[in-house]
């Protein structure tokens, strides 16, 4: 499939700080592309350079095979990480204001229905809850029926119900064939929503692929977990590499069957056994380390 967006050797410097250091990636039409990375990895800067909010120091951004033109703004929708809105306007009035800025604007009633804004559409836009606000901001990003949608940490700060609700909404938008570029700190979110993922660190893309590919390449092991009491003083003689986390023993393995056979042969009680599949989170931690980022 042809790439809708290509980024080549993108660099963004702020005086001596290099926020983006030669990042390259391509996004195919109709996919949900996740950009992951620890705090300060350069995700938001990369996204904002692509969105034309800030200029790049160097590098190339190709949209539909050509450098971006003035019509690029007509074809993209953006939900920023944080956004302030015009004061003393209701949700619907705000949508109407933004609707008037585009030639190919969406029908507001359809957006209200899609994003479930009905019950608060006549409230002032600063008097709605966190979940309502994120759905409202998403509807604003959709106001021009964009082909390419940028969602910068859309579910940050939401409770589990509101987050799930937002994911369903994003899935629905994805099914309409829109291309989505998503940044998030929630690996579960990325795994649930993204077809393809790039992991950034220190301004560089350090890995990319589908969630399955990344897991297979960077964190293929399953984790077998047992409470320490199951070992009945035989833990020291366990012939497998393991990690003790509080009162649980974690054993990483590529072959669950042989691991379990070995445990059975050692008469270890498996009644409280848990097996955890490899996840994107372990890929992320393997690639970017466990050190705290500010």
């Amino acid at each position: 499939m042809a790439a809708l967006l290509e980024i080549n050797s993108l660099v963004k410097k702020y005086n001596t700080v290099i926020a983006v250091n030669g990042a390259s990636l391509s996004v195919e039409q109709g996919v949900c592309f996740g950009l992951l990375g620890p705090n300060g990895a350069g995700k938001t800067t990369t996204i904002e350079v692509i969105e034309d909010v800030i200029p790049p120091t160097s590098g190339e951004i190709i949209y539909k095979g050509k450098p971006r033109t003035a019509s690029f703004k007509d074809e993209i929708g953006i939900q920023f990480q944080t956004t302030s809105l015009l004061s003393f306007l209701t949700v619907r009035e705000t949508l109407e204001t933004f609707q008037s800025l585009y030639r190919n604007a969406a029908d507001i009633d359809n957006l209200v229905e899609l994003c479930q804004l009905g019950e608060f559409q006549h409230q002032y836009n600063d008097r709605i809850s966190g979940g309502q606000r994120q759905r409202f901001l998403l509807s604003m990003a959709l106001i021009n029926q964009p082909e390419l949608l940028f969602l910068d940490e859309p579910s940050t700060g939401l409770d589990p119900q509101a987050r799930r609700n937002l994911w369903d909404l994003i899935q629905q938008i994805k099914q309409e064939g829109k291309t989505i570029i998503l940044t998030t700190h929630y690996m579960e979110e990325a795994q649930y929503l993204c077809d393809e993922i790039a992991i950034m660190d220190y301004g560089k893309i350090i890995a990319r692929g589908t969630p399955r590919e990344l897991i297979k390449q960077y964190s293929p092991e399953m984790t077998v977990m047992l409470p320490t009491r199951s070992f009945d003083h035989s833990l020291d003689r366990l012939p497998l590499p393991y990690r003790k986390v509080h009162d649980t023993v974690e054993i990483k393995t590529n072959n669950v069957n042989s691991c379990l056979n070995l445990l059975i042969s050692k008469n270890i009680d498996l009644s409280d056994l848990t097996v955890r599949s490899p996840s994107l989170e372990s890929v992320f931690l393997n690639l970017t380390g466990r050190q705290l980022r500010e």
Binding site: V53, F80, T83, S84, Y102
Partner: peptide, 11 residues
């Protein structure tokens, strides 16, 4: 407060 930033990305 970022209102102009939001408007900048519109046409």
């Amino acid at each position: 407060n970022g209102v102009l930033k939001r408007l900048k990305v519109t046409p």
